[in-house]
Design a protein around this nucleic acid. Structure first.
Length: 382
DNA sequence: TTATCCCGCCAGATC
DNA sequence: GATCTGGCGGGATAA
């Protein structure tokens, strides 16, 4: 069993060389996912069993350490619906197909929260004030014990992971750095220690999401700092789907659009979602400021739109797009445009899987181009 | 030097 | 009381 799971070569070739990468949460998550996926949908995953099997993959780790990490992983996977808890030690594997539904739900929830706060708080400082009073109101009438439980729940990795997903889907931003996400999720709390803790947790979440191929880490074009971008989700996100990226833009807001266009019904659920809404609002304002300085930046949305309207897809294009009959001259011009875009925006994926996938697309594109050129040549000869 | 994140302590939850 | 669960932050490693 362990033979088929991915382990870093260095560890097996020379167990005396310790590498942090061998123990990464992302790697452990990948192995865990392989383990679960093989069982098939609706199967039950026992944590003991999983910890034992994954423990075998790592020369350096004790099973208890792996087990602790598995708790982190299952919490995060639960946040996007891949797993659901059945009983103590027992989780149900829902499969990757459950992700889109979970993400849709989170998106709706996030937009709902956003509209709620927007309708009652007219600027950022008011939003913060609303948030504080809401939290206070909710605190009143509760026992110290239940407040403590709420506080614990609010800080759980699962809630944090869900809020992280909402950040991508309910705000205008495409690229989110972890410290920005942390400060957004913290709201008006400016404690450096809390910020550090939140960022640490976000690193864990991001690693698992990268393993799931839900997000990818790239370098910010502005400052070269690492930022994360939502890739896509489909039936099997681990197979990756750059073509499906931004597939659900219809419900996303465009840059600079107002957020207050949804029903002004006050909605209260829990303090974490209110904090989330305020955070999103804050993130939007920050983004608007940022945009004033960088109007020349081409958004991913624009690229996408251009891709669907102006370009003819090859055999690897999205199946949903109609094949249009465009003249050879236009076609060549468009190919040229594609090449310009590709050279200009050639992505440097940190995510190995995304990188490989991109390489595959480039390879496919090149072979198709050669094929098309030959075809054109033949037509000219006739 | 800064970013990243492994590790395991320990407290609360559950059995 | 035992075991499970998971928040948390120190500090090591990678970049």
């Amino acid at each position: 069993m362990s033979s088929s799971l991915h382990t870093e070569d260095s560890q097996w070739k020379n167990p005396s060389i310790y590498s942090r990468k061998d123990k990464s949460l992302g790697l452990l998550c990948s192995n865990f996912l392989k383990l679960c996926d093989r069982e098939g949908e609706d199967s039950t995953i026992g944590l003991d069993n999983a910890a034992d099997q994954l423990g075998l993959c790592s020369v350096f780790s004790s099973t208890s350490v792996e087990r602790r990490r598995i708790y982190d992983i299952v919490n995060i996977l639960e946040s996007v619906g891949v797993l659901s808890r059945k009983a103590k030690n027992q989780y149900r594997w829902n499969g990757y197909s459950a992700i889109s539904k979970a993400v849709d739900l989170l998106k709706k929830e996030g937009l709902k929260d956003l509209s709620t706060v927007s309708s009652t708080c007219h600027n950022v400082s008011n939003v913060i004030a609303c948030n504080n009073s809401d939290v206070k109101e909710k605190g009143e009438g509760k026992t110290a014990g239940s407040n403590k439980i709420d506080n614990r729940k609010e800080k759980s990795l699962m809630i944090l992971a869900q809020n992280f997903v909402k950040l991508f889907h309910c705000s205008d931003v495409d690229l989110i750095s972890l410290d920005k996400a942390a400060s957004t999720l913290l709201g008006d709390v400016h404690d450096p220690m809390a910020m550090k803790t939140k960022t640490r947790r976000l690193y864990d979440i991001a690693n698992v999401f990268v393993s799931l191929n839900l997000i990818e880490k790239i370098r910010s074009p502005d400052n070269g700092k690492p930022v994360f971008r939502w890739i896509a989700w489909n039936e099997n996100p681990r197979s990756g789907s750059l073509a499906a990226a931004k597939s659900d833009d219809s419900t996303r807001r465009t840059f600079g659009a107002e957020i207050t266009n949804i029903t002004p019904k006050r909605y209260r659920d829990d303090s974490s979602s209110d904090l989330m809404s305020n955070g999103l609002k804050r993130l939007k304002v920050a983004k608007d400021d940022e945009l004033k300085d960088k109007k020349q930046e081409i958004s991913a949305e624009q690229l996408n739109e251009r891709g669907t309207k102006d370009f003819v897809f090859g055999p690897f294009g999205p199946s949903s797009l109609p094949r249009s009959g465009i003249s050879g001259k236009e076609n060549l011009k468009q190919i040229q445009n594609w090449e310009d875009l590709a050279s200009k925006y050639h992505p440097q994926y940190q995510n190995k899987a995304a990188n490989e996938l991109f390489a595959h697309y480039v390879e496919a594109w090149e072979s198709w181009q050669v094929e098309a050129a030959n075809e054109l040549h033949k037509q000219h000869e006739h």
